[in-house]
Amino acid sequence: MATPANENDPRVKRTRQLLLQAFISLLEERHTIHSISVQEITERATVNRATFYAHFEDKYALLEVWMREKFHHVLESQFSTTSTLQRSTLHLLILAVFDFLALWQYHLKPADRQFVPFFEVALQQELQEVLLNWLKQVPLSVPVCQETGETTALVISWAIFGPAVQWSRGDQTITKDVMAHHVLAIVIAGLSPVVTVT
């Protein structure tokens, strides 16, 4: 079990970044995730194994953080920090999820398919966090407790993520834009008991 680390400590951030950069450089060389070991990551990052396990429970935890960061950077490049929950931003968010998953499926190596569940959990959690932040910034139609807001973000994130995953794995006979339009309608309907999306 990883020792809890203070994520606000600059030294912790630097070490985590070193480990992630070591993993990324190994991935660029090897092109497959399954062939990279914790030992190789720590050697490349010039830290010991104990340091690795102080930051990540295992290689899969590092993979989850890496995937979330990749997706986070994509979203950050498309949305300003002042973006709010509106029809237009929801539509862009849905399209971004579809694009990211399609690109990821295209580049996924057969040897790395075992990691798909870790990646999917990481992406859905990042999406949920974006939606929760947006929900916190808008006046709600009815007073809701924190758990209701979190549950709403969870349900809506899966309403977006589930169809995007299925579409990215399929033959894509329905265009991304048509799928995004259908998903947007369902998402807005799902949000309607809590918030009015304009």
Rank of each mutant, 00 (worst) to 15 (best):
D171Y: 07
L27R: 00
E64V: 04
A96F: 08
S25N: 04
K176R: 14
W104N: 10
Q172R: 15
I188A: 09
W158K: 11
I33N: 00
Q125R: 15
L108W: 02
D58L: 05
V65W: 02
V187N: 03
S25G: 01
F98P: 02
M67V: 02
V197K: 08
T196W: 05
R44T: 12
E69W: 02
F98W: 02
Y60I: 11
L135V: 04
Q172E: 09
I174G: 01
V130R: 15
F23D: 00
D171A: 15
P4F: 14
I160T: 10
W66S: 06
L26V: 01
W134Y: 09
Q86G: 01
T46K: 07
V47Q: 06
R87S: 04
E40I: 01
T82A: 13
D9K: 04
E69A: 08
T32I: 08
S141K: 10
V197W: 07
A96L: 08
R11G: 01
A61E: 05
S157I: 07
N48S: 05
L95I: 13
R30K: 08
R14A: 14
T198N: 14
C145P: 01
S25Y: 00
F98N: 07
L108G: 03
F98Q: 08
A122T: 08
A61F: 01
S37D: 05
A189R: 13
A2T: 12
L154V: 00
T148F: 04
S35Y: 00
T152V: 15
E129Y: 13
T82R: 14
V155C: 06
T196L: 12
T15V: 15
F100H: 15
Q114W: 07
V155E: 08
T42L: 02
E150I: 05
I94K: 03
P10V: 08
P4M: 12
